[in-house]
């Protein structure tokens, strides 16, 4: 039993005024011990709902969920895990160290030193005697992380830990999370910050409308990159040869910009451009970004499709601008 979290066919259906609504559908997740697992999905995809089920705060409608080898919600597991909810709130009349002592007491821990050590660890050592009402968002998020370490957990659930933070607070928290992994903890993190996720997560799952779309190692999911070819002095009919599924092609004033999957035999394309006496300006291999994968995963949505296209075009315009600038610089 080496999985920290495992769900099988996990389903949650809410009864709403417009009939039953499944917000988590047949979810199969496997989170390995000692990894940072990114749990992604658009707003309302069912991430928080899933986390609440895993913590036993709400019950699933059907399916199974086990956490640290016990059924979800088991109090024994709760001694070894911790949870930082999205947009957490702390009793404002208490000071930082009082809040820590309060949470510690829920584990039966009476160690004030430990509370202070953890506050120091998240850089709140100097503010520990100030009431929480005076804490900034970033400080509140840091005290949230500090309280989540009280029981030296094996598994941490962090629901949008960097939501609404400035870039510096952001980086601090990201670094803390990386250290958690170094300490051998498993981190289950839900986030909209794809660049963070890309930087720190070992594996990710992407869900959309309650359904699992992708799950796997980040490096594997992001392999199969794309190549962007830019060439000048071509005619429209040469450019038309490059149209195809999953190709993004623009042609203007003899300039072709083609964004193609690297599985699409780029060599043949380059040959075709040379054969038509075109000038190859640049060939840029691009690793797939998590953002691309994410947008792909939720692309059922028309709005998103539109956004994806326009974004691609923007990118090309930007690339064009750079090329023009280079040429001008050369002249």
């Amino acid at each position: 039993m080496n999985l920290a979290i495992e769900t099988k066919d996990l389903t949650k259906t809410y009864k709403t005024s417009s009939g039953p609504q499944s917000v988590v559908k047949n979810l199969d997740l496997q989170v390995e011990r000692g990894e940072i697992f990114g749990f992604l999905g658009p707003n309302g995809a069912g991430k928080t709902t899933t986390i609440k089920i895993l913590l036993g705060i709400i019950d699933s409608t059907s399916g199974e969920a086990s956490v640290l080898g016990n059924p979800a919600g088991d109090i024994e597991s709760h001694k070894k895990l911790s949870y930082l909810p999205e947009k957490p709130y702390y009793y404002e009349h208490m000071t930082g160290v009082e809040i820590m002592q309060f949470y510690a007491s829920l584990f039966g821990i009476k160690d004030r030193d430990l509370c202070e050590r953890l506050l120091n660890r998240v850089n709140l050592g100097n503010d520990m005697n100030r009431p929480i009402s005076q804490y900034s968002k970033g400080m509140q998020q840091r005290i949230g992380l500090a309280q989540s370490l009280l029981n030296d957990p094996e598994l941490l659930f962090l629901d949008e830990p960097t939501g609404g933070l400035d870039p510096i607070a952001h980086i601090e928290i990201r670094d803390l999370i990386l250290k958690f992994r170094d300490e051998g903890r498993t981190v289950f993190i839900s986030s909209h910050e794809l660049s963070d996720v890309e930087r720190i997560c070992d594996r990710v799952a992407i869900i959309n409308k309650g359904e699992l779309v992708h799950q796997g190692r980040l490096d594997q999911l992001l392999s199969g990159g794309r190549i962007e070819i830019t060439a000048d002095n071509l005619t429209e009919d040469v450019a038309n040869k490059f149209r195809g599924d999953d190709f993004t092609v623009s042609f203007k004033n003899g300039r072709l910009i083609a964004d193609i999957p690297d599985s699409a035999h780029p060599g043949e394309m380059l040959d075709a451009i040379r054969a038509a006496n075109g000038d190859i300006v640049s060939v840029i291999p691009r690793r797939k970004r998590l953002e691309d994968l994410f947008l792909e995963s939720v692309a059922g949505d028309n709005v998103l499709k539109g956004r994806k296209m326009s974004k691609m075009t923007d990118d090309h315009n930007a690339a064009e601008a750079v090329e023009v600038a280079k040429e001008e610089g050369a002249n």
Partner: peptide
């Protein structure tokens, strides 16, 4: 205020 979530995620019935 979601304070209950943090509390119930501890070993608290």
């Amino acid at each position: 205020r979601r304070t209950i979530y943090t509390i119930l995620s501890k070993p608290v019935y």
